[in-house]
């Protein structure tokens, strides 16, 4: 579904991604962890070309993401994205936030888009907030709206870029619950997170990154119980024992 072949990315002189090789299958839940600045977010943002790669090949759903002839807008329809800071549209209601892209991009009718929106709002547990504006919601609720907004396009892949990092601790759970449900239903998910509990419980595979490289790929059981890499062991000891 998603394949990185020897992908490199530079920001000027800064080598952000180094020889990334990664293959993610349909229905797989891959959790990317690692210290900040290790390139996790950048790697995920390459998948829908919010970042361009400098060299190497990146295929998503059989399409070359960085090919000049690729219709990126078409590819992006199939890839939902959830951001750390939600990025809901503050001048639009919850319903409008969710229906905008289906109407303008997929061309579905207003009525159908609203039905779909309600279905997904129900799914993320806040159907009563349809007519509210984003600022009237808590962080956790806003992030659930953002997830519903992504799902309303019926994407094949969902990307999560630190979806709980900006939330207050009490609302993290409600967002993770929605993501767990999604994973169980077979959605292909790539998740950048610092939530180790979630990673251990939900991930099919853990990808550990440091300094722009993928240092280790393993099942959660292997990774958390017996990490191969010294750097991964250090990372885990720092975040788990405090």
């Amino acid at each position: 579904m998603i394949s990185f072949h020897q992908v490199n990315k530079h920001y000027g002189n800064f080598h952000v991604l180094k020889n990334i090789d990664l293959h993610i299958n349909q229905g797989e839940v891959v959790v990317v962890i690692g210290p900040s600045g290790s390139g996790k977010s950048t790697m995920v943002r390459c998948i829908n070309r919010l970042e361009t790669v400098t060299s190497g090949e990146l295929l998503v759903d059989g399409v070359k993401v960085n090919d000049k002839n690729t219709d990126i807008n078409k590819l992006r329809r199939n890839i939902g994205m959830v951001f750390q800071h939600f990025n809901l549209y503050p001048h639009k209601t919850v319903l409008e936030n969710i229906t905008l892209a289906p109407i303008k991009v997929l061309g579905v009718s207003q009525k159908e888009a609203e039905e779909t929106a309600l279905y997904y709002l129900e799914k993320v547990g806040i159907p009563d907030k349809v007519d509210k504006f984003p600022t009237q919601l808590s962080g956790g609720q806003q992030q659930r709206v953002a997830i519903a907004r992504g799902l309303a396009m019926r994407p094949k892949i969902m990307l999560f870029d630190e979806p709980t990092s900006a939330l207050d601790p009490e609302t993290i759970g409600e967002v993770l619950d929605v993501m767990k449900k999604l994973a169980k239903e077979g959605m292909t998910m790539v998740v950048v997170t610092h939530e180790m509990g979630f990673a251990r419980e939900v991930a099919d595979r853990i990808v550990f990154m440091d300094q722009g490289r993928i240092l280790e790929e393993a099942t959660p059981k292997e990774f958390f119980e017996n990490p191969r890499e010294e750097r991964a062991r250090l990372f885990l000891s720092r975040i788990l024992n405090h």
Partner: peptide, 18 residues
């Protein structure tokens, strides 16, 4: 306008002009 607004809009498949 925060950069995230454009990113959210573009990643949902809207064109730059939209």
């Amino acid at each position: 306008i925060p950069k995230g607004q454009m990113e959210a809009a573009r990643s949902s498949g809207l064109t730059y002009n939209q």
